[in-house]
Each structure stands twice: as C-alpha cells, then as structure tokens.
Design a protein around this nucleic acid. Structure first.
Length: 337
DNA sequence: AACTTCCGCAACCGCAATGCC
DNA sequence: AGGCATTGCGGTTGCGGAAGT
C-alpha cells in the first residue's frame, strides 16, 4: 500500500494557513470541486500538498461546518455514541450535523474526557472507576484544605455530593447487573444517559437531589473530604450481606452511607427496607444504621409479593436480578426503565 | 510588567482502507 | 491478482492566547 508523499520532500508549505491560501482553496473548490486532492494544489495555485488542502477544507473551510460551542444536546450525543463506538470519531461525526471528526475528537480530549474522570468514570469504558478510594490521598489533601477554610455549610454540601455520587454509582452497578436493562447494543448504563438519572428524582429519598447532569460538574467537580467520608460513614467494606437470604451481588465492594441520622443507603446493596411490610410502596429509608443488621428476612413469600419469585435463585446473577427487579418493581423507579 | 504554565485547537503524521489500472 | 495512488482516519504535536505567579 502506498504512502502519500511527504510535503517536506517537495518543499511544500506547512503550518497554519493564511487567509490568502484559504481564499484560493475556497475559490477553486467552489468553481471546480476538489476532484483529485493530489492535483488540486497546483491547479489552485497553492504551495501545499493535497493532503493539507483536504484537511483544511474538510476541517475548517467547508461551508456546512458548524462552529462554536457544543450544545448540551451535542455533548450528550457524543457521550452516548462514544460509549457505543469508542474513538470512532468519523462515525460519531456523522450523527452531528456540521461537526467534524477532528472537532469532536478535540472536544472529547479537552472537555468530556476530563468531565468523566472528575465524575469517577473511566473515559474509555464509561464504567464507574472501581478505584474510587485509590484517590484517597487527593481527597485527604482536599479535606485538609477544607478543614481550614470551609464553613460548615460547605461541608454539608460536600456530604450531599458524596451521597449523590454514591447514589449514581449504585445506579450504575444496578443497571449493569440488571438483565431487564440489558439490550443487545448497549448493555450498560453510561454517563451519556445521565439524563435518565434525572427521573430518579421521583424517589422520595433522592427527591432532595437537584436534577443531575454533566453540567452540574462543570464548574465544581464532585468532591468528598475524608472528614465527610468519616462523618457520613461512607464506608468501603467487604461484602457482608446484612440482608438474610440474599446472596452477595457480584460486585467488588459496596458503600454504605448515612444520609443523616435517620437514613441509610447501602450501595450497591441498596437495601430498600420495608418498615413493617414488604410491599412495593414500602420505604427506602432505613431507620438507623444498626437496624440494617436486624432487617427482617426477605423470604420468598415477601419477594413474591414484590416481584418475580423466580428471581430468587441462589446464584449471584439471580441475586442481582432479584435486587434489580425489586428495585424496578417500585413504582417510583418505573421511569428509569 | 514580565515571565511561566496551562489549555484549546488547528494542523500534521503515519497507518489502514479503498480505488484504479 | 497485484501494485501503486489516493483517501480516510485516529493519534499526536506544537503554536498562540489565557491564566497564574
């Protein structure tokens, strides 16, 4: 397979294009079309290689190019497509009218990738990073700063953010393990679908969380101080299922966070605990941290009252399925699916 | 004000795919 | 079918302006 001759070999000009060169290129293409890119420079009176002309035209001079800031919608589209296609910039560009692959690639590398990292996602897999606590030193450093300069109010906000982040991670784990959410083309939840998470605001416990999307992290990435981790009892601990009869889901760890003194969220073993009954409308809220160890057993009877009894299989997958169905059977969560 | 560092983006490089003879 | 030319694509570079010191 042949290689294009390098511009250098022929003493052709490289580097930024001048307005005069742009004008020549535009004039020529408007009159004759680009035809052979190799022949074009000579015909257009340009001391450039054909490749350079082609790139200049396709990435900058083409009249149908849309310039300027990417809209929220475009951003979501890129995130979504990237989660499916990966770094197939040209394929992604076909779904964004007027945007070039180069522009999308640059936007990804300079903005979106950083956002995902800040949100705790692996930008390549779009999966939540499981090494959240490997960034502990950074969190500690942040905590030290906050310790001296932040007001109590700020700390409370951080705690809320920690809870928010944990909830997102929970939902990701949940959606990943839920067969009911699996499709052939996109079997996992991804941040590009964060708009979906907004619907979770209908969950009573999460209602207090404002509508959540990427822009929420634009100016201030979610941050968690070590102090607040301690205060909120956001714990990293081995799986020790406190819910009898429910096998541990196949996840590396789970979080447990106390929203306040009265509420507990366990993640991803997000335990919706009935307070006296196991009906679908029972509360999501645990009365106290300790109560999680004294939960009434979720028996097959109670499960059948809630969801599909066949999902009570003792294997791990069945467990995930069970929990997922348990959760998704909740009318509050119907919007998600 | 001067210098340094950071950041965004246009452009380049080089490999792969496709087309043509 | 094989070889060369051309085009497409993704990764990387480096320039210029902004922000920070």
């Amino acid at each position: 397979m042949g290689r294009s001759p390098c511009c250098d070999e022929n003493g052709l000009k490289k580097g930024p294009w001048t307005p005069e060169e742009d004008e020549k290129l535009i004039d020529y293409i408007q009159k004759h079309g680009h035809g052979s890119w190799r022949a074009l420079p000579k015909l257009a009176g340009l001391n450039r290689c054909g490749k350079s002309c082609r790139l200049r035209w396709t990435n900058y001079l083409r009249p149908d190019i849309k310039r300027g800031k990417f809209s929220q919608e475009e951003e979501q589209t890129i995130l979504h497509l990237h989660s499916i296609l990966g770094n197939k910039w040209s394929a992604i560009a076909t779904h964004l009218a007027g945007r070039t692959d180069n522009e999308i690639k640059n936007f990804w590398n300079t903005h979106l990738k950083k956002k995902l990292i800040q949100m705790g996602y692996d930008p390549m897999t779009h999966q939540p990073r499981t090494d959240l606590f490997s960034s502990l030193p950074n969190l500690i450093a942040l905590a030290n700063i906050l310790e001296h300069h932040q007001l109590e109010e700020h700390a409370a906000r951080l705690q809320a953010e920690a809870v928010q982040l944990a909830k997102i991670q929970y939902l990701q784990c949940l959606l990943q393990t839920s067969p009911s959410m699996t499709t052939s083309s996109n079997s996992h939840f991804n941040p590009g679908d964060l708009g979906t998470v907004n619907s979770i605001s209908s969950i009573p416990q999460i209602r207090e969380i404002p509508s959540l999307n990427l822009s929420d992290f634009e100016n201030q990435p979610p941050s968690v101080s070590i102090e607040n981790i301690a205060n909120s009892q956001l714990l990293h601990q081995p799986i020790t299922s406190n819910a009898p009869n429910i096998p541990d889901p196949q996840v590396p760890f789970h979080f447990q966070t106390h929203l306040n003194n009265d509420e507990v969220v366990r993640i991803p073993n997000f335990t919706r605990v009935s307070q006296g009954d196991n009906t679908p409308n029972s509360s999501w809220i645990l009365p106290s941290p300790d109560s999680s160890s004294t939960l009434p057993p979720l028996t097959e009877t109670s499960i059948s009252n809630i969801g599909d009894a066949s999902s009570t299989s003792s294997n791990v997958e069945g467990s995930s399925s069970y929990w997922s169905e348990l959760l998704f059977d909740d009318p509050f969560l119907h919007d998600i699916s």
